[in-house]
Amino acid sequence: MLTCRDINERSSEYLDQQMSFMQRMNFRMHLMLCKHCSRFMRQLEAVVHTLHRLSPQQSTSEEQLEELVDKLHQDPQA
C-alpha cells in the first residue's frame, strides 16, 4: 500500500506518465481513497500545467532582432 508520502515522492512520475500500469492503478487507488492526496495532486497538476503554458518574456527589442538578422544575413561564413 502506498503512503501519502509515497504519493508525493512519485507524483511527478505519475503526471509525466512514467509508471507501469500496475503502479498507476495503485497510485489511483490511493487518490480515490485519500482526499488530502487527491487535493495535493490537483494542485501539483495545476502548477505543472501552468509551467507548460508560461510564455517567455521577450527581452530583445525589435531593433536588436533586426540588427541580428542583418548580421546573420551578411555573415560571410554562412
Binding site: 517567455p56 518574456q57 521577450q58 527581452s59 530583445t60 532582432l65 541580428l68 538578422v69 546573420l72
Partner: peptide, 9 residues
C-alpha cells in the same frame, strides 16, 4: 529569428 529567439533566450 522572430519565431525562436525569445524561447532560446
Amino acid at each position: 529569428v522572430h519565431l525562436y529567439h525569445t524561447n532560446m533566450t
